[in-house]
Amino acid sequence: MTRILVLGYYGFGNFGDELILSAVQNELTSIECEAVFVVNEPGQYTSPVCPRHTLVDRHNLVAMRAALRTCDYVMLGGGGLIQDVTSWRSSLYYLGILLLAALHNKRILSYAQGLGPVRRFWIRRIVRSVFDRMILIDVRDDASRDLLLDCGIRTQDICVSSDVGLAYLVALSGEPVAAPRRASRIIACVNERFGWTPEETASFLDCLGSQSFAQLDLVVLFPSADLAFTRAVQDRLLTPSELIISPQPLALLDLCSSASLTVAGRYHMAAAAVAARSPLVALAYDPKISQLADCCGFDAFQPGNSPQQAAQRVRTRSIPPVTEESIERIGRTRTDRIARLKTVLERRNL
């Protein structure tokens, strides 16, 4: 049976990456293959849902060599793995494994992959060298495709689908249900990288809450990065608030579906609000959030906006949920992506 080694930033406590892990596992269950997922600390996971799926410790060099030697394919498994803003070393890790695999006659591919920003010329050269060897290039958005084109990748070889975590949340949410929204409930996920201080962030949320005497739920999706900042924001709030740490995907969808407004300071918080059809505004600390906003039609504030101006803009406008047309389009990209991977594997195994 075909064996795929799947690379990702799995096992580090980030809701988004764990969601992507679940999503890729879910999509691969419909394909006749064995999948080995490269993770941090495999012991933290229960047995994979699919008996054909296993885990390997990314820090165990002996196990990694064995996994690479026995696989037929190596796949970038979603998320924004190739970028050099937070660290160039991360890109070098994934690109290095892919290049090593290609040199050992393994077939390599990307799956719902986000790319960029990539500012260093020498990393762009490696990106071109690696992606030129791929038998399937599937990216999550137009910006990732455009970056590959800038690197010199062949146009006809790039497929644009959607973020695999977003598509998974849409699938979990199912058909829209006319559930009542609490007019006085705001769900917010905040992130220090946006650039506002705890005082400024609290001022923004208080301005939103004061209009409707709202209850505020502060959701933390990446505790090691965001918990301290979120607590600092909570300490400065005048609006009554509750802290919710690392909810499960279905619980997060329930929170968003009952909210009158979701404030998303993380990409997959915005994804959950899209899937739950929640009125949504985002704090775009990263271009990927602006790209998602452009795709789905919600407002995304950029760093440099003052908290008061941003709050005034939200309060004076009607914030509609994402359209069903956008939701349906995301669902189709998931179906098409799985079909493309099946076709590639079947063609290569003839």
Score class of each variant (00 low, 15 high):
Met1Asp: 11
Ile4Phe: 08
Leu28Phe: 13
Glu32Ala: 11
Glu32Pro: 05
Ala35Asp: 06
Asn40Ser: 15
Cys50Asp: 15
Pro51Ser: 15
Pro51His: 12
Thr54Val: 14
Arg58Gly: 07
Arg69Cys: 08
Thr70Asn: 15
Cys71His: 08
Val74Gly: 03
Leu76Trp: 03
Gly77Tyr: 01
Leu81Ser: 01
Leu81Tyr: 03
Ser87Val: 07
Trp88Cys: 12
Trp88Tyr: 10
Gly96Cys: 02
Ile97Ala: 09
Leu100His: 10
Tyr111His: 13
Tyr111Asp: 13
Gln113Ala: 08
Gly116Asn: 06
Gly116Asp: 05
Arg120Ala: 15
Arg120Trp: 08
Trp122His: 13
Trp122Thr: 13
Ile126Ala: 12
Ser129Gly: 13
Ser129Leu: 15
Phe131Tyr: 15
Asp132Met: 09
Asp132Thr: 10
Met134Ala: 09
Ile135Met: 12
Arg140Tyr: 04
Ser144Glu: 04
Leu166Ala: 06
Leu166Gly: 02
Ala171Glu: 13
Glu175Trp: 04
Pro176Met: 10
Ser184Cys: 10
Ser184His: 14
Ser184Tyr: 10
Ala188Phe: 05
Cys189Pro: 00
Asn191Glu: 07
Asn191Phe: 03
Phe194Ile: 05
Thr197Phe: 02
Thr197Leu: 02
Thr197Met: 06
Glu199Ile: 06
Cys207Asp: 11
Gly209Trp: 00
Gln211Cys: 13
Asp217Trp: 10
Val219Asp: 01
Arg236Pro: 00
Leu237Arg: 01
Leu238Tyr: 08
Leu238Ile: 08
Cys256Asn: 12
Ser257Leu: 11
Ser258Phe: 11
Ala259Met: 05
Leu261Glu: 02
Ala271Ser: 12
Ala273Trp: 06
Ala273Ser: 11
Ala276Phe: 07
Arg277Val: 08
Leu283Tyr: 03
Tyr285Leu: 09
Asp286Ser: 14
Lys288Val: 02
Gln291Phe: 12
Cys296Gln: 12
Phe298Gln: 06
Asp299Glu: 11
Gly304Met: 06
Gln308Phe: 05
Val314Ala: 07
Arg315Ala: 10
Arg317Lys: 03
Ser318Phe: 10
Ile319Asp: 03
Pro321Tyr: 10
Val322Met: 08
Glu325Leu: 14
Ser326Cys: 13
Arg329Gln: 09
Ile330Gly: 07
Ile330Glu: 03
Ile338Gly: 03
Leu341Ser: 09
Thr343Pro: 00
Val344Phe: 04
Val344Pro: 01
Glu346Gln: 12
Arg347Ala: 15
